[in-house]
Every structure is written in C-alpha cells, then in structure tokens.
C-alpha cells in the first residue's frame, strides 16, 4: 500500500514537471522584458537611462508647446530643421535617443513639419532624399517644392558631478534652443534637469 502511494506521488510529480516550461538552472536565470518607460528599469548614477531620455523628451516638448513659439510662424505648420545636439557627457550615446521621441511628438501635434533634407549631409539629413530632390529640381520637375525651414532646433547635454562623503550626485542638463531663422534670434530656450543622487545604482525607482 505504502509502495503504491509513493509510486503514484512520484509519477504525478514527474507528470507535473514534464508539463512545466523548461528553465535554465541557477539563480541568475532571471532575464525578463520591461515595458517602455517602466519604473522597474535600472537606475544608474553615471549615465542617462531610458526613462531619463523619455522624461527629458516629454518635458521639453511640453515646454515648447506651452511657450507658443511654434504658433508664431506666419505659415502653419512651420517647417522645423532639427540640428545637432551635442553630447557633452562622459558617456557615449546617440542623441537620437532624445530627438526621435521629440520629433514624433512635435509632428503629431501638427504644429510643425520636420525637414529631413536640410542640414549637413548624412548626419542629420537623409542624403538619398536630398540628392534625388536636387536631381529632380535641376531637371525642372515642378512637383519638387523647396520650402525653407522657419525654425531650427539645436542644443547640448551637459553632465555635472558632485560628491559628499560616499554620496554622488549627477546632474544631467538637457539644453535646447529654438532659433527663428529669419531674424536669427532664439525664440525658445528649453532646459530640463535630471538629477540622480545615491551611493550606487538601483533596480527600479
């Protein structure tokens, strides 16, 4: 009777485990996916994390829209040239991590159209589109319009470090300037500061 009970339990346990998904053995097997902008992502003191780029992009777009500068252009929606954003921090990253989100939101707001053919070749602009347009333009194609950007957006990202005892503070400044090209003057000066303070990085916030 006892043997029967043990055998039945063993077979049942084996059956349960065989239905279960296969997992790597060991404590470190805990990789998982996080949603975009999650509050469970890593928080590093020495670099700008994904959630920081999302927050900075959103705050800068909100500030730009609230300023009303874009609606001052005589022709709506105005054409915006997005220039270079200099990374003056200690870590390398592509500034498109900030700019792509901003461009998406600004375009969706229908307050601007964003030029992708104006600017230095290959870096900011689409060089293929630019060369095709030039060819068509010289060939006299009347469908090719050459609207000039009314605004230009440029800026830089700066990092500042301070330490007291074992506590480190990192300040990341996102500084953007919107220039009205006719007058050559700045019409909006955006500033978003992301400050992190602590002894070491954390998982989630």
């Amino acid at each position: 009777m006892k043997f029967l009970t043990i055998s039945t339990s063993l077979i049942f346990t084996l059956f349960l485990f065989s239905c279960n998904e296969r997992k790597p053995i060991g404590r470190a097997a805990d990789a998982k996916y996080l949603e975009d902008g999650s509050n469970r992502g890593l928080v590093n003191l020495d670099k700008i994390n994904a959630q920081d780029f999302i927050r900075a992009a959103n705050q800068l777009v909100v500030d730009l829209l609230a300023s009303g500068s874009l609606s001052e252009a005589p022709n709506q929606p105005a054409i915006l040239h997005v220039g270079e954003i200099r990374n003056d921090t200690q870590t390398y990253f592509d500034t498109d991590l900030l700019l792509q989100g901003m461009k998406r939101d600004l375009l969706a707001s229908k307050k601007v159209r964003i030029s992708t053919t104006a600017g230095p070749e290959g870096k900011i602009s689409d060089s293929y589109a630019d060369s095709v347009r030039k060819e068509l333009g010289t060939g006299g194609d009347k469908q090719v319009s050459t609207p000039r950007p009314y605004f230009s957006l440029s800026g830089k990202i700066i990092e500042e470090t301070s330490r007291v005892d074992k506590v480190t503070q990192k300040d990341f400044y996102f500084l953007l300037t919107l220039t009205e090209l006719n007058g050559g003057t700045g019409v909006w000066f955006g500033r978003e500061l992301i400050t992190k303070q602590g002894r070491r990085g954390a998982i989630g916030f």
């Binding site: 975009d36 902008g37 999650s38 509050n39 959630q51 999302i54 927050r55 992009a57 959103n58 777009v61 989100g101 901003m102 998406r104 939101d105 969706a108 916030f205």
Partner: peptide, 20 residues
C-alpha cells in the same frame, strides 16, 4: 505616469508614457 486617451478612447503612444 500619464496616459492620454483620444476621442474614441484609444491610448495615445507618446513620450508621456514613462514613469517618473
């Protein structure tokens, strides 16, 4: 985190979809 909903009740996917 802020979520925007359009007139038809659909979630708008923009940069506000991040926890802060």
């Amino acid at each position: 985190k802020l979520e925007w909903l359009d007139n038809e009740g659909f979630l708008v996917k923009d940069t506000s979809l991040g926890w802060r």
